Amino acid sequence: MCANSCHIKQVEASNAGVKVGLIVRGICCLLAEIPGETENIHIRSIVGRFLEHSRIYIFGTPDRDKIYIASADFMTRNTLRRVEVATPIYDDKIKQRIRDMFGLMMKDNMQARIQQPDGTYLKQNRDVEEINSQEQQYADAYERARQ
């Protein structure tokens, strides 16, 4: 159940040439990479062992981005039937940490699956260094806790 208004805006952005990258926990009913419609939308699914996932929203270019974190996904059941919250991130150090986390998830080639135009998901190419973004984030958190 995806919010239709979000899909419409993402398709409009794609058609205007905006690159849209989505990291979803499971499946997404928006079909990505369809020529002439959603060719600028790329969807990655990452499901880890605890099913946890971030609610990070980054808009704009790295030099002038706006970053938000939220308590829920923008799905109809969350936006129409529940009280949820999203907040902007202003602190530059925290913004950089969130960008780094997002970048790590975009490099994940162990848990990530890439959505194809027909809605199927394929595993990443593993010919390069193996990256499991969630396991790396666990290790980083344990290291910070030790310090």
Rank of each mutant, 00 (worst) to 15 (best):
M1Y: 12
M1N: 14
C2T: 04
C2P: 11
N4H: 14
H7M: 02
H7G: 03
I8T: 08
I8R: 07
Q10P: 01
Q10E: 13
E12W: 04
A13W: 07
A16I: 04
V18C: 03
K19E: 12
V20G: 04
V20I: 13
L22R: 06
I23P: 02
I23V: 13
V24F: 03
R25I: 05
G26H: 11
C29S: 12
L30I: 06
A32I: 02
I34K: 10
E39I: 00
R44T: 12
R44K: 14
S45L: 01
S45D: 01
I46C: 01
G48E: 07
G48M: 00
R49W: 12
H53L: 05
F59C: 11
T61G: 01
R64S: 12
I67H: 00
Y68C: 02
I69R: 09
A70D: 09
A70N: 12
A70Y: 07
S71V: 07
S71R: 11
S71A: 08
A72P: 03
F74H: 14
F74I: 15
M75L: 11
R77M: 13
R77H: 15
N78P: 08
N78Q: 13
V83K: 13
V83E: 15
E84C: 14
E84I: 15
V85N: 06
V85F: 09
V85H: 09
T87V: 14
I89Q: 02
D91L: 02
I94E: 13
I94G: 05
K95M: 06
Q96P: 08
R97Y: 05
R97N: 03
D100A: 11
D100Y: 05
D100R: 14
F102Q: 01
G103A: 13
G103C: 09
N109V: 00
N109W: 04
M110A: 12
I114M: 05
I114N: 02
Q115V: 00
Q115M: 10
P117C: 08
P117E: 12
G119L: 02
K123W: 08
E130W: 12
S133L: 02
Q137K: 10
Q137R: 09
Q137P: 07
Y138N: 06
A139L: 11
D140G: 08
D140I: 08
A141Q: 11
R144C: 08
R146C: 10
